[in-house]
């Protein structure tokens, strides 16, 4: 089935729970109301014509500081060999989605990863713990407004003096390129040793 037909089918079944459908995107994606994610996924998985038996990717992304967070599901059907993607947006604080880990077991760990890096809770996930970061890590690293914690078990996490004096350090290439900045981009040094133009992020 083409993505348009799948989207029509979803709209017929769920009505205004399907908020919009981007059919011109490279991977057509339907935006779903957050509370309907589980029902939509269950329908996509169980319906004989759709039969999405594999959740190929489950990933979060941040729409920018102060804006919403989003989760995108890329689904694939081995039987019919078609793709579909749905996404849902949740608020930055206290955002939560129903789990799909009981439909596709892949999702269990992927949801843990999204929880770990974005702080989105998945209601009903059997084992929602941090997965990549340590259990006692503070903050949600992949958010755009993430600030590294000061100390972790007595170990200093940010290089503060480097952090504040980035421009002087960048002028001193001996130390400058050992500093990794989350906020500012490192100057790209081309073959001549001259700094290329800085990006206007």
């Amino acid at each position: 089935m083409t993505p348009e037909l799948i989207a029509e089918k979803l709209q017929a079944r769920f009505g205004d729970k399907i908020l919009e459908f981007a059919k011109d995107a490279i991977n057509p994606v339907a935006k779903v109301a957050p509370d309907a994610v589980h029902d939509v996924c269950k329908f996509l998985k169980d319906d004989a014509e759709l039969y999405f038996d594999m959740c190929h990717n489950l990933s979060g992304y941040d729409l920018g500081a102060g804006k919403n967070l989003a989760v995108i599901y890329h689904l694939f059907s081995f039987k019919h060999q078609h793709w579909f993607a749905i996404k849902a947006e949740v608020p930055r604080e206290g955002g939560h989605l129903p789990t799909v880990a009981l439909l596709w077991r892949t999702a269990e760990w992927h949801e843990r990863e999204v929880f770990d890096l974005y702080g989105i809770r998945f209601d009903g996930n059997p084992d929602l713990r941090r997965i990549l970061c340590p259990d006692d890590w503070e903050g949600w690293p992949l958010r755009k407004d993430y600030v590294v914690q000061e100390y972790y078990h007595g170990i200093r996490v940010p290089y503060k003096e480097d952090w504040n004096n980035f421009d002087t350090l960048a002028a001193n290439p001996e130390r400058g390129h050992f500093v990794f900045q989350f906020e500012k981009r490192l100057p790209v040094v081309n073959g001549n040793g001259k700094a290329a133009e800085k990006s206007n992020q």
């Binding site: 890096l117 970061c133 690293p141 992949l142 989350f182 490192l186 990006s199």
Partner: peptide, 17 residues
């Protein structure tokens, strides 16, 4: 239990061309 080699490639990628 994983994450011993975690360096958050995805965060690095958001700061590079």
């Amino acid at each position: 239990h994983i994450g011993y080699l975690h360096r958050n490639f995805e965060k690095h990628a958001e700061n590079l061309g």
